[in-house]
Write a protein that binds this DNA or RNA. Structure first.
Lengths: 203, 203
DNA sequence: AACGCTACTTACCGCTCGGTAAGTCCTTTG
DNA sequence: CAAAGGACTTACCGAGCGGTAAGTAGCGTT
């Protein structure tokens, strides 16, 4: 049963870190969600940094699983990529939480650095790059160019998962819902356009 | 001279908030940068929230200025938009700091909410929307669809300004520099592609 | 010369932070 | 049935947090 508690704690930690960021969440905040004390968390994980590290590690594994699933589902690399990004931006609450957390990590890891960082994402980015290289016309592009394109797509995808509260604040509930409805199709078009545009050779 | 001190403080605050986030920066941190005490900051701004609010307000003004400049520079709305996003992603340290801060605000404002938020950006988004509506083929698109597209572009642009440290961690200094070199041209292509794809009517 | 104002200071306050120490309770194992 | 160990608690700690109170020092006005 301790296993379950641990997993529940990790899940809560992920949600809270995604919502408020590493510095915006205290160990006690996470523990309160379970009716336990912060020392219970420290017992299981040792330190706040380690909790955060485990959350990131789990996310990295999920992304790799997603990658595997997408590769199993299609042969065409462009379809694989489109499917992958579509899944990452599904709008399901799991995905939104994960996207938020990854964006925060992107912003913060410079300062918390090596401890636990985007390094976990390295294999995922490597797989992404290989997938893109399999697209006709991309095979001879430099890694740097491919990553530049991929990062722009990831940026577009990520903003989707993160903007909802802001847009609701600016445009009201009905307006935000209309935008949310329009997003997925529009996103797919943007991704298709970005992938269709072949990488530009360095000048 | 008090004016100068105040401005310096705001500048430092902006940089630190961008680097470490609202919760990752204390008033004392900001004050230390000037050799003053935190009470000096509280004297000038009243509270931490108000410092942050002033930073956001200044950014909103800058974006509006940028918008005006771009409109004065070109007649074609698509060129205006491309120019605008290009300037926002110039890679100059000012722009990187501003982009980081806006991304953080996007992630955090749900919780700090009305106090001081993306509401400052409302006029900017409104202008952006109008600019997009002037593009041939976009005039009859719903606001929601236009904003969906714009947000994706903003996402792609923003990731550019924020990813450098992470990419350096993953690909090393030389690799990251190659990516940085490839980014601008690639970004322009992505923006052009996203703008070229006409908004999709709601199904 | 007294006044008021701005710019700042030192001295606090109550609170929360991450983390340590030392236990209690309960279950598993020999 | 005792020993061991995991799960969790209460009781702390020093440090840092945002913010208040009460000044002081230097200026321009009257």
């Amino acid at each position: 049963m301790s296993r379950t508690t641990r997993e529940q704690m990790l899940e809560t930690a992920r949600m809270l870190f995604a919502e408020r960021g590493f510095y915006g969440v205290s160990i006690a905040n996470i523990a309160d969600e379970h009716g336990l004390t912060k020392q219970a968390l420290l017992h299981h994980f040792g330190s706040k940094e380690k909790i955060y590290g485990e959350v990131l590690k789990a996310i990295a594994e999920e992304l790799n699983d997603l990658m595997t699933a997408v590769q199993a589902g299609h042969d065409d690399p462009q379809t694989q990529l489109t499917d992958l990004f579509g899944r990452m931006a599904s709008g399901r609450s799991d995905d939104v939480i994960r996207t938020r957390l990854l964006m925060r990590e992107l912003l913060d890891n410079k300062h918390r650095a090596q401890t636990a960082g985007a390094w976990y994402l390295k294999p995922f980015l490597k797989s992404l790059t290989n997938m893109a290289k399999a697209i006709p016309g991309w095979s001879h592009a430099a890694d740097a160019q491919i990553i530049a394109v991929l990062y722009q797509i990831i940026g577009a995808v990520s903003y989707y998962g993160v903007s909802a509260p802001t847009l609701r604040g600016i445009y009201g509930k009905a307006g935000a819902q209309a935008i949310e409805r329009a997003f997925p199709a529009q996103l797919e078009a943007t991704i298709a356009a970005a992938l269709a545009a072949r990488p530009i050779a360095e000048g």
